[in-house]
Design a protein around this nucleic acid. Sequence first.
DNA 1: GATAGCAGTAATGAATATATTACACGCATA
DNA 2: TATGCGTGTAATATATTCATTACTGCTATC
Lengths: 97, 97
Amino acid sequence: MTKTLQQITLVGEAVSHPVRLKLLYLLSEKERYVYELSKDLDLSRQVIQLHLKRLENAGFVESDLRLEDDDNRAKKFFRLKSFDVKLEIEDLAKIFK
Amino acid sequence: MTKTLQQITLVGEAVSHPVRLKLLYLLSEKERYVYELSKDLDLSRQVIQLHLKRLENAGFVESDLRLEDDDNRAKKFFRLKSFDVKLEIEDLAKIFK
DNA sequence: GATAGCAGTAATGAATATATTACACGCATA
DNA sequence: TATGCGTGTAATATATTCATTACTGCTATC
């Protein structure tokens, strides 16, 4: 699969922060919602949301706002889509040559 | 090979900027010195040096200040050491589990 | 001797990243 | 009804990133 310059930089940026790596790990286990993650990581909900947005932009996660049967409080769930991080010189050669 | 959290973030950061990716590509062809790169990329020598330092911190490149036979002006050459970018959920699991 | 090649360091400035607090709103529960 | 759970948005503060200019100093070349 051919990667664009922007795809590469977005992925790089996504994995360049420890909190985002932790989020990736947690979401690899099961889907979780924002408030829950902010409690678990002891960080503000807004920052967690920002990090998740970065991960979403990189194509790693996806989300949906969802109601559960027995609770009418909407929760924004995130889950891991794919995690395929691999970069070779050939990828760069295709871009710059 | 086991990766530490910091190793992962350094690598991610290294590949998160288009100029650094271009530098990696150029250095994959042959070694080059700082002044030369700054001319080719039309950027200040100081910024090129900064980007190269990031690449060096991530373990991608190495440098030496060198005199050539017929020229007594020292040149700081950079070359690609290794380029092995691969990250899997298992790497994160080892760190966070 | 002036200009260009080549390095090092320092100061500065604009933009982005990271994190917080604060506000509004609705639902759940003691 | 007060407190906690859960969302959204906005304002703010600090740090870092990215890029520049400016200075120094040496060698090469016209």
